[in-house]
Computed example of a mutant assay.
Amino acid sequence: MAELPVVERSDAEPKPGDAFVQSLARGLAVVRAFDAEHQEMTLSEVAARTALTRATARRFLHTLVELGYVRTDGRTFSLTPLVLQLGYAYLSGQRLPELAQPILEELSHRHGESTSLAILDGTDIVYLARIHTRRIISVGISPGTRFPAHATSMGRVLLAALTPAELAAYFARAELAPLTPRTLTSREAIEAEVGRVREAGYAVVDQELEVGLRSLAVPVLGADGRTVAAINMALPARIDGDGRNAGRDAEVARLVPELQAAAASIAEAARAVGAA
């Protein structure tokens, strides 16, 4: 069996102290160990993913089973829909997805392509809203879905808004794994691309998250002018006979202004209700 990656406890790991409850941190690490690539795991796999002993992982898993957050067939474990309640309180308290939804829907229907809203959380982006049209990515995306920031257009827009110190901290934590043969995986290449995004005001990612997928993204700015989120449009990537990205320049010229207008409308709506 291939060695499983270890799930870090958190992006800014707290130092144990009087206010730090280690058992809670470990229990949350067990929940976070499950993802799209690890929907079902054995006890040994959970222990490996969380860097816990088998005995400790067993206690947390069976506690989660008793509480209804995890199910088991006696050999493997998987999450139940009850875990959605853990994130619902956060998502339901966010005004930005509610404000962005009709604007993203209008943009999506006008062009016949999927649109999304996301924020940066640690080294990942987290989707807050998603308007589906045709299915051009194999993994289902919905609010709460996470992807590595380095391989996504919205992630690059959000990374471009970080200060040099924040960006350095990101690279210290991020696992720059290749998701396709085209994914940028070196810090130097990603930093250079983030710099271009910062200068241009938009990001284009071609087949780095998934083969056949191209994505354009722009920032959503808060009242103070800082980036609070990003929106994108997902498109099928077309490659010509010479291996070049066919139609990319035309798509950028046509769609980036539309995305920027939508982002400005979202920002204006958020400012009007004091949400950004």
Results as ranks from 00 to 15, higher is better:
Pro164Thr: 05
Leu43Glu: 10
Gln207Ala: 14
Arg271Phe: 00
Glu40Phe: 07
Ala29Tyr: 03
Val205Arg: 11
Leu64Lys: 01
Tyr202Gln: 05
Ser265Arg: 15
Gly87Ser: 12
Ala2Gly: 01
Glu106Ile: 03
Tyr170Arg: 06
Arg238Pro: 00
Leu128Gln: 14
Val205Trp: 03
Ala165Ile: 07
Ala2Gln: 12
Arg9Gln: 08
Pro143Ser: 02
Gly17Trp: 06
Leu221Lys: 09
Ser78Ile: 00
Glu66Gly: 11
His150Ser: 11
Thr42Glu: 06
Arg75Tyr: 07
Ala100Thr: 09
Leu99Glu: 11
Asp18Ile: 13
Met154Asp: 04
Thr115Asp: 06
Arg173Pro: 00
Phe20Val: 14
Ala229Tyr: 07
Glu210Thr: 04
Arg244Gly: 09
Val218Asp: 05
Gly222Arg: 06
Leu213Cys: 07
Tyr69Thr: 07
Ala246Ser: 11
Val204His: 11
Ile131Met: 06
Leu104Arg: 09
Glu113Ser: 09
Arg134Tyr: 10
Leu162Asn: 05
Ala262Pro: 10
Val220Glu: 03
Ala203Ser: 12
Ala264Val: 05
Ala230Leu: 10
Gln207Pro: 06
Val30Pro: 04
Ala203Tyr: 01
Ala203Asn: 02
Arg196Glu: 14
Val70Cys: 06
Leu64Asp: 06
Ala246Thr: 01
Glu188Pro: 01
Ala217Arg: 01
Ala237Ile: 05
Arg173Asp: 01
Arg182Cys: 07
Val252Trp: 10
Ala267Gln: 10
Ala261Thr: 12
Leu128Ile: 03
Ala12Lys: 13
Ile119Leu: 15
Leu184Ile: 04
Gly17Tyr: 08
Phe34Thr: 02
Ala263Val: 05
Ala12Tyr: 13
Val273His: 01
Val220His: 02
His38Gly: 00
Arg196Met: 10
Gly112Lys: 04
Leu216Trp: 04
Arg248Val: 04
Val126Met: 13
Ala161Asp: 10
Gly222Ala: 02
Arg156Pro: 07
Leu24Arg: 14
Leu235Asp: 06
Arg9Pro: 03
Ala149His: 04
Thr76Phe: 07
Pro236Phe: 07
Leu128Pro: 03
Ser23Cys: 05
Arg134Glu: 15
Phe77Pro: 00
Arg248Ser: 00
Thr180Gln: 01
Leu176Cys: 12
Thr42Gly: 14
Arg9Asn: 01
Asp242Thr: 13
Ala237His: 12
Ile137Ser: 13
Glu258Trp: 02
Leu167Phe: 08
Leu221Phe: 13
Glu37Met: 00
Ser23Glu: 14
Gly74Ser: 09
Ala246Lys: 11
Glu193Gln: 14
Arg198Thr: 00
Leu259Met: 07
Thr180Ile: 05
Leu213Ile: 05
Asp206Gly: 02
Asp242Gln: 15
Ser92Tyr: 12
Thr56His: 10
Glu175Thr: 11
Ala174Lys: 05
Arg58Phe: 13
Glu268Trp: 09
Gly27Pro: 00
His62Val: 09
Thr152Gly: 07
Thr42Asn: 03
Arg238Ala: 13
Gln85Lys: 09
Glu37His: 02
Leu104Tyr: 03
Ala55Gly: 12
His150Phe: 11
Val83Cys: 00
Arg226Ile: 08
Met1Ser: 06
Ala47Trp: 13
Leu179Asn: 01
